[in-house]
Amino acid sequence: MQKKKLGIFSFTCCEGCTVVFIELLNNHFFDYKNRFDFVSFRQLKSNNKTGKMDFAIIEGAISTASEKKKLLEIRKKAKKIIAIGSCACTGAPSNQRNNFRPEIKKEIEKQVKALRQLKTIEPLKKYVKVDILLNGCPVNITQLEKAMEGL
């Protein structure tokens, strides 16, 4: 059987959802290794590519132009995008500065600029079509496990 190509990507977030995925590997490592060819998984390998893939699992919200560009590229190359965790699905909590009071927004304005961040931090669906949304902070491990079965 041809292995499915799977990419794991991480944008602006605490990376807790990838940690949940890594904990899932405790019981599914050999199974996933047999079923998937991990084309991108920065936590586990170097030489990560954004080539053609069957699935892209993405955590995190989009905070910079380069992240946005990368997301659009992933969308072009991936048959399905699975957003994991509330940062990817809704933007929160990584997007909290969007809702800061005006005084605090002013205080952090300089830093936001220096960091080359976009005006607001947004969930994936703001920029691309997302096929599967798995919400939660972090993503629920049982739901993720189920979703992996279906891929």
């Binding site: 944008f11 602006t12 905070s63 961040q117």
Partner: peptide
Amino acid sequence: ENKRFYRDAVKGMGYKAAPMHLARIC
């Protein structure tokens, strides 16, 4: 460039909410 401004966000919250919020740093 992925700073998320937790220290600023936590100001104004009740003390009980601070730990679970700041834990989202990592």
